[in-house]
């Protein structure tokens, strides 16, 4: 068995060598990423990296997926030893990366960070492409204020307290409240797991306490879903033409289908697809940007949503056109 495996391996290596000799030299990329089972976001992110940095596109890319920071660092060191041209990192933990980044620099490897920043000197990497959570919040709040409601009585459902997404998304709403543009009548959280059920309880508490509200600002789609379940059970109308406006985040396809059906009102993108932009940086060579770069992100409401947008920009499974996920 061992002998056969060895032969197969030798043949494969030979084939690869022959292939490499004929094809243009591929760009060697090492990707250090989190595991796809972490979230729907990560699943889409990992797939996107694989699709863009493919053999067909002229890359020789390898990806390591682990949620363990030390394993990530070991993988990065391995890629540097292998002599990659580019190292792309989405770090599990923001600290502990200084040595690796410096050795990458010494070896002449260009480092791009994606999705997650690292606590280190900006000179240790070339550029970082991240989501601007505050801008996502502003997108949502701007959309809301454009609806010209007579009054804005908002139920805020936060995500994991202190997380970047929660701080950014809450920040925009709190700023609008401080400016007197809207009122927050209930302020709750779905907890560390951004829990659908906790969100539902927050809204149920507001309903049974007799609070008057007309907006639900839930910081991810699952919590928006839980909030809407509470409204349905209490017989409160929502969505297009309804009493309560529903805002969710993350562009899950089920959420976008709910917006399309007028069951919800608006969903805000948090794109997991950074690979294409990083590919343009690689092509740009010396002209690639430096420092922190924010992704451009959009919103979808009942008026602007299209099937194409759901297919291209959504994440997770698509329930299909006209199917409402209650």
């Amino acid at each position: 068995m061992a002998f056969r495996a060895k032969t197969v391996l030798t043949v494969l290596v030979l084939l690869a060598a022959v292939g490499a000799a004929f094809a243009a030299p591929a760009i060697k990329v090492g990707i250090v990423n989190l595991p796809p089972e972490e979230s729907g976001y990560r699943q889409a992110n990992v797939e996107d990296m694989n699709n863009v940095f493919s053999k067909a596109n002229g890359y020789d890319a390898k990806q390591t997926n682990t949620g363990d920071n030390s394993e990530q660092i070991a993988a990065a060191q391995g890629y540097i030893r292998d002599g990659v041209d580019y190292l792309l990192i989405s770090a599990a933990n923001a600290s502990g990366w200084d040595n690796v980044l410096q050795s990458a620099k010494k070896a002449g490897v260009t480092v791009f960070l994606f999705d997650r920043l690292i606590d280190t000197d900006a000179a240790n990497y070339r550029a970082a492409l991240v989501s601007d959570m505050a801008a996502e919040g502003e997108n949502a709040v701007n959309w809301l204020l454009k609806q010209k409601l007579a009054s804005y009585n908002v139920i805020l459902i936060r995500g994991q307290l202190g997380s970047a997404a929660e701080l950014g998304r809450s920040g925009a709403l709190l700023k609008a409240r401080d400016a007197g543009k809207l009122k927050i009548v209930a302020d709750g959280t779905g907890g560390d797991s951004w829990s659908l059920e906790e969100a539902r309880k927050v809204v149920e508490a507001a309903i049974t306490a007799g609070k008057d509200f007309n907006v639900i600002y839930a910081e991810n789609d699952g919590m928006a879903q839980g909030a809407v379940q509470a409204l349905d059970a209490a017989g409160i109308s929502h969505g297009k033409g309804g009493k309560v406006k529903i805002i969710g985040f993350d562009f899950n396809r089920f959420a976008l289908r709910n917006v399309q059906a007028g069951y919800w009102d608006c969903d805000v993108q948090c794109s997991p697809r950074q690979a294409a932009e990083i590919a343009t940086w690689i092509k740009a060579g010396k002209k690639a940007p430096t420092g922190k770069v924010f992704q451009k992100e959009i919103i979808a409401d009942t008026a602007t949503i299209t099937d194409k947008l759901i297919a291209e920009k959504g994440i997770n499974a698509d329930p299909g056109k006209g199917v409402i996920t209650k």
Partner: peptide, 17 residues
């Protein structure tokens, strides 16, 4: 266990609507 559930799902969050 959650990785096992993820593998059984095949793709994340299948919809039961």
């Amino acid at each position: 266990g959650r990785s096992v559930a993820f593998l059984i799902d095949g793709r994340l969050s299948p919809i039961l609507a």
